[in-house]
Design a protein around this nucleic acid. Structure first.
Length: 271
DNA sequence: CCACCGTCCTGGCTGC
DNA sequence: TGCAGCCAGGACGGTG
């Protein structure tokens, strides 16, 4: 499931497409293109790639006239291949590039989406702040937490709260911040708020430095799976304290945590 | 604002 | 060995 670090790695890897021209496109699975599968090819034909970037979990191709956004969801991949290469049975959208190549959107589970729009805000307008941006300060984070009574885990997964955090990095950030996933968001002390802020940025930066987390899916060359401390480690000892990592369901999401390092009730230690 | 549920999909897993 | 059935997972829409 590509999250911010994986999508960032993708966007960086696609930089060589800058300057290339789309000649056309075809949607092989119509629902993959909510903005109109039939319009995609005629509209993108002739447009040149000006920039490739990331916003939240979206890959954003700025084109000469429009903006192409791709959300990989869980199993999506983007691959540049020679047009003569063997067809991909899981290709959902195929873009014709110049120089006899194709950009293939491959997605076995068909959850990913491709949007071609004039204004990217049509797709990304509701997203929360970028957690690694300079203007995302501890004060801004604390202000967003204020009055939110929901559970931390659910809030971290809310893309309108902070953009780009998914299940892996939410669990990792909470463990690093020593906060239980069920803690009400507005119950954090100032120290805990700063710990969570620092932890979110640290795990995302580490993920980017490691070129993403590569679990059951082979689409990244990332190594971040080697440094995960709780995600998918239930039944194994916590790397901090040795207590067995537990798994629970929070908001329909598998959630992994250390009951010792992340107590639900803060222990009042007599001074 | 928040909780919860259904929907979309299919590969991979479990259990028999 | 084969097959049926279940489930994860991000985002969104609907409901209470």
């Amino acid at each position: 499931m590509p999250e911010l670090p994986e999508v960032e790695t993708y966007a960086r890897g696609l930089q060589p497409l800058i300057g290339r021209r789309f000649l056309g496109a075809r949607a092989l699975w119509l629902r993959s293109v909510p903005t109109g599968p039939d319009l995609l090819g005629p509209r993108i034909a002739g447009q040149v790639v000006i920039d490739v970037a990331r916003r939240g979990k979206y890959i954003v191709f700025t084109l000469s006239d429009d903006v192409l956004l791709v959300h990989l969801k869980m199993t999506g991949e983007l691959v540049v291949a020679p047009a003569a290469a063997p067809p991909d049975p899981h290709a959902r959208v195929v873009f014709d590039l110049d120089a006899g190549e194709e950009l293939r959107f491959h997605d076995p589970r068909k959850f990913g989406r491709v949007y071609l729009v004039a204004d990217p805000a049509q797709v990304t307008g509701a997203l929360g702040p970028e957690p690694l941006a300079d203007d995302f300060t501890p004060q801004a984070f604390a202000a967003r937490l204020a009055g939110r009574r929901g559970r931390l885990k659910s809030l971290l997964l809310d893309q309108t709260f902070v953009a780009g955090v998914g299940n892996i990095y939410a669990d990792e950030a909470l463990h690093r911040a020593r906060l239980h996933p069920l803690r009400p968001a507005d119950s954090l002390t100032p120290d805990e708020q700063v710990r969570l802020y620092d932890a979110i940025r640290a795990v995302l930066r580490q993920g980017i430095a490691n070129r993403g987390t590569n679990l059951d899916w082979a689409y990244t060359q990332g190594t971040n799976q080697d440094v995960l401390r709780v995600f998918h480690r239930h039944g194994q000892p916590c790397l901090t304290c040795g207590t067995l990592i537990e798994r629970m369901t929070v908001g329909q999401r598998g959630t992994h945590f250390c009951p010792q390092c992340q107590p639900l009730l803060r222990l009042e230690v007599a001074g």
